[in-house]
Design a protein around this nucleic acid. Structure first.
Lengths: 249, 249
DNA sequence: CAAATAGTGTCTGTTAGACACTATCAC
DNA sequence: GTGATAGTGTCTAACAGACACTATTTG
């Protein structure tokens, strides 16, 4: 479906004429988003409590259906804005889930994305922090349901559909990506201390890291640059503030 | 679309009644497969030359449309069998490509998979080696076109649609995966020498590796086990044959 | 024998982990 | 001053790269 209408060639018309056969039956395509943040040494995700059939009362990932006139990436960005009021944060495709019976209503593929946001931005833009609250949820047919930033480290939350698999894969992807990409920055404000960065890494990896080694590795990577500024009012020697450098020195 | 027919609840019926709105417009979903192998120190992939509109004459990845009654993984396995006659080889989802105009005919998502096969199995099962030949291609509408195992290292082949992006991403994924997964085995026969394994790694990474270090790393990983057997008729000291161990010692 | 590659032993440089020590803030 | 964390210097263990040397086959 090209953006501009143009005269179709005979070949194209022949192809389209044969299109409605059962061979080309089309599934619905949902885009679901795992919006991750770190709050108090725990990984959290934005979750919505379903108010309708199926899996009513269980928690589900924010998402919606892809439109025919938008790319998958555009759909993910649109949904991130609609569901969490967020723009311009880290957003990347995760995986496409395509089991036949993953949704009891009909055949729905889920193209999952994961996004990272500093906890500060969540609070600033009005998304509730830890405890649940009522939000406007433009989900299909839903009248509005509970939403919240939930602790997802343990895996104790009852999740709808196959969203536990999606969430689990997002955490594993993030963990794997830490080894070769400076992805921890996406979960921190623009200026941060190396201790904060280490805590982010430790939370994601779920294990303690060596302070000296972590500091050396980060400084050697050239991805963090000292600002010359320091924290204040911290009750101990203030740490230097760093910024993320997109072009490694 | 659950496998067994059961009585629909009122909620389910309400949902389905609202389903045909434009909001839920459904795209076609293709599954495309990057079948990779290593021949003579070069990465090769199975490619088909298109005989029809669009991009007639250009090379494309083998693929086809997902059916509503099969999972994405099942569709990939079916297509691998149909297009290359291969079963039970390494096959993993790669990425889903969803640009609006990636296919000029209509909106088609492509869920790409990549597969690895030892060059020996390709030859054994009748797929042509390096040079092109006529094969039965059960592609939609096609009458049969050229197919071949093409050198894809350079990127000089003119590819249809966005298949250059798909192919490029498959190679990058394979390269990245080598760092933490023993994926090189999938491109070798059941018994192999460490030198053969190193050549596979070097081909994928496109750079020479240190012999001693590679050998130490592989043996330390516990993923290769010596069989006690050795090669023969090689014109030099024969190397020990190893096998892949799924459970690292 | 020569040619060729397999496989081992050892040195060196880099880096992660560990630990001790000093520095600098709030109070 | 005390308490707490930041940041540095140094030692050690693990490991990759490099190289020399020996081993074992074909012809």
């Amino acid at each position: 479906m090209p953006a501009k209408k143009r005269r179709r060639s005979k070949e194209e018309r022949d192809f389209l004429a044969s299109y409605d056969s059962a061979e080309f039956a089309r599934p619905s395509v949902a885009v679901d988003i795992v919006l991750l943040t770190v709050i108090g040494d725990k990984l959290h995700a934005l979750m919505l409590q379903r108010a309708e059939y199926p899996d009513r009362g269980m928690w589900s990932l924010p998402g919606g259906f892809m439109q025919l006139d938008e790319s998958l990436d555009d759909a993910a960005q649109r949904l991130l804005k609609q569901k969490a009021g967020l723009k311009r944060i880290f957003l990347e495709q995760l995986f496409t889930f395509g089991e036949v019976d993953r949704d009891p209503r009909m055949r729905i593929l889920s193209v999952a994305y994961y996004a990272l946001v500093p906890a500060e931005r969540l609070k600033l833009e009005g998304v509730p922090y830890v405890q649940l609250m009522q939000v406007d949820v433009p989900w299909e047919g839903e009248k509005g349901g509970e939403a919240g930033i939930c602790d997802v480290q343990g895996g104790a939350l009852p999740l709808a559909f196959d969203h536990d698999r999606i969430l689990g894969m997002a955490i594993l992807r993030l963990r794997g990506k830490l080894n070769y990409a400076p992805i921890g920055f996406e979960l921190l404000p623009r200026e941060f201390t190396l201790r904060q960065l280490q805590t982010i890494h430790e939370t994601i990896l779920n294990r303690p890291l060596n302070k000296d080694s972590f500091r050396r590795r980060m400084l050697a990577s050239g991805r963090v640059i000292a600002t010359g500024k320091r924290e204040s009012n911290v009750g101990h020697r203030p740490a230097e503030l760093y910024r993320f450098s997109r072009n490694p020195a």
